[in-house]
């Protein structure tokens, strides 16, 4: 073998290395793997060159071997460098290769559960009032005339009993009724203890009326009561404003307006500015711009008397929130019957 051959070979190697290096710079991982095989595989070019080494003389062999090692190192470095660089690209592009989608439907469909919107409202209300220092109390749904009416200053022949048409039943020969409001809860607590009292009573109530889009013979109420020696009408307003702003998560325009309940004096109803039309008047608020959310007032002295409290000493306020109503306002629900149909297409929205 003459020297020209060797120099020619070395030139070929240099050419090959340059060519491959150029390819490496543009290759992705898969292609790199192929290139690597092409160079260093069983029949790789570099491998074959190495295999041919013994046929050259010592000086040529030395020269050629040196060159070969150099080429090997250049190629290996180039590949490692390219792999490092393309790893980040690889990471990002891998899902693309696997044809992945980011749609949520692309994952295993664990079933969706739901809590009833009424219950969620009650939980929210309870949480707010607990943070204002109220305790939560439960009361029976099966009541006597005393708790539901008499003790609350509603005598038997009062016209307002017309408004609350009542379901009656017998229990072992005793006349019972299904409570028409959660206010009997006040009496139960006051009979058991002396003030200070600061409670809410959530629960189901009943009215004997035919169901339609805005009436149901069953609905939920939350009663509130605070009694001590120095509770005022101002405190009542403060608590309710705080509650409404927190519940609707915004500072709404509120309206306190006089009303009439037997068990409170002075009595008030609270309206909020319609959420949907911002007071301009729309279908939902019946063009009034306002929507009634609760009734309240200062506990009537006759109620305090009926539980043998000293009505000169103790004073307090009470309020009642219609759960369905404010749930409907909050979620834009237009028919109260939806709450009791229990159609999953409705329930799973909440």
């Amino acid at each position: 073998m003459d020297i020209v051959n060797i120099n020619e070979l070395i030139g070929n190697i240099e050419l090959f290395v340059n060519k491959i290096c150029g390819k490496i710079k543009k290759s992705d991982i898969k292609e790199l793997r192929i290139l690597k095989t092409k160079c260093f595989g069983k029949n790789g070019i570099i491998t074959n060159f190495s295999k041919s080494l013994p046929q050259y003389n010592v000086s040529d062999r030395k020269k050629f071997g040196l060159q070969l090692n150099k080429a090997k190192k250049i190629l290996e470095d180039a590949i490692v460098k390219r792999i490092e660089k393309s790893k980040s690209v690889y990471r990002d592009s891998e899902p693309h290769h696997e044809k992945l989608s980011y749609s949520k439907d692309f994952c295993f469909p664990f079933p969706k559960g739901s809590l009833h919107p009424i219950i969620q409202t009650i939980q929210d209300i309870i949480a707010i009032f607990k943070s204002l220092g109220f305790a939560v109390v439960d009361g029976p749904e099966l009541e006597t005339d005393w708790y539901n009416f008499e003790a609350l200053n509603i005598p038997e022949d009062h016209p307002s009993r017309d408004v609350q048409d009542t379901f009656y039943l017998n229990e072992n020969g005793i006349k019972k009724l299904l409570r028409t409001h959660t206010s009997p809860g006040q009496i139960h607590i006051m009979e058991k203890q002396l003030p200070p009292i600061k409670i809410i009573v959530p629960g189901r109530v009943y009215r004997n009326e035919t169901s339609d889009a805005s009436h149901s013979s069953i609905f939920y109420q939350i009663e509130g009561l605070e009694i001590s020696e120095n509770i005022t009408f101002m405190d009542l307003k403060a608590v309710l404003v705080e509650f409404i702003n927190r519940f609707f998560m915004s500072e709404l325009n509120l309206r306190f307006r006089p009303s009439y309940f037997q068990f409170t004096e002075p009595s008030a109803e609270v309206d909020i500015q319609c959420n949907f039309c911002k007071g301009k008047g729309c279908k939902i608020c019946k063009n009034l711009g306002w929507m009634e959310v609760l009734g309240c007032g200062m506990v009537h002295p006759n109620v305090l008397k009926s539980v043998n409290y000293d009505f000169q000493k103790y004073i307090g306020y009470a309020f009642g929130i219609g759960v369905e109503r404010i749930t409907m306002l909050k979620h834009n629900i237009n028919d109260i019957r939806l709450f009791y149909e229990n159609d999953l297409r409705f329930l799973k929205q909440f």
Partner: peptide, 29 residues
Amino acid sequence: EEIVRIKGYDTVPYVKNNKYSTYIVNNAF
């Protein structure tokens, strides 16, 4: 009630974050 009604319920002042004390109720659960 008549006095505050005629004067206007909206004129009733209220103080934000007034006394929010906690009382313990016997059968509260």
